[in-house]
Amino acid sequence: MPQQHTSSPDQGERFDWWAARPAGPARAVPKSRRTTRQPAQTAPPAQPARPVAPPPGQPVTVPPAVPAAPVSAVPAPAVPAAPPAPAAQALRTVPVPPAPEAPAAPVDRAEVYRAVQESAAFQEIRRSYRAFVFPAVGAFLGWYLLYVGAQAAAPALMRSPVAGPLNVAWVLGLLQFASTFLLTWLYARNARTRRDRAALELRWNTQDQLR
């Protein structure tokens, strides 16, 4: 998948909003972010209580890019079946809704983040991330510590020969290399197929709401 930077020219402005060079106000120091980023911070925040549910499209609750699945009855620009590159561009053009109300109403950032966090799409991203990572980390940490502990706990076993000059200790050591490479590949595959598309979609949606 290409980097988001190389999008079509008409995406440029939208992109620049968040990737603005340090001079831009979006790059304000984190501490002062809340006050500097919104131009109208004097106005009472969050009058439009639910900026998260813009009328058409309902971008946030769209299920995370199930390929070619019936995305819902909404006349959404459902192109998820397309190959990644065009899909990413199309997704960015999806959230038009906030445009009409954005200039008028200041956005309560905390409200947006809370709503996104509670959305089904985000919950699914988090679930697929944690469901892979937590067991995997437990497994390889346990496997490594067992391997290190075994040197002291079972020296006789570690010394027993397996094939040629290799003994159990060497085989386990080489298996550590193999398992590290294998887990790296599995993790990348999981992230690529389960998370990436949905996370990118949610990113553009959230940023549009924050605008």
């Binding site: 968040w18 979006a26 790059r27 950032r109 905390a110 983040y113 809370r114 996104v116 966090q117 985000f122 991203i125 988090r126 991330y129 998370r195 996370a199 990118l200 949610l202 990113r203 959230t206 940023q207 924050l210």
Partner: peptide, 19 residues
């Protein structure tokens, strides 16, 4: 503060507003 955790979590996992 649940708001800040929400912001961190959403930003960390989706890349919203990433530098």
């Amino acid at each position: 503060d649940p708001d800040r955790y929400a912001e961190l979590e959403v930003r960390a996992l989706t890349g919203t507003g990433a530098a």
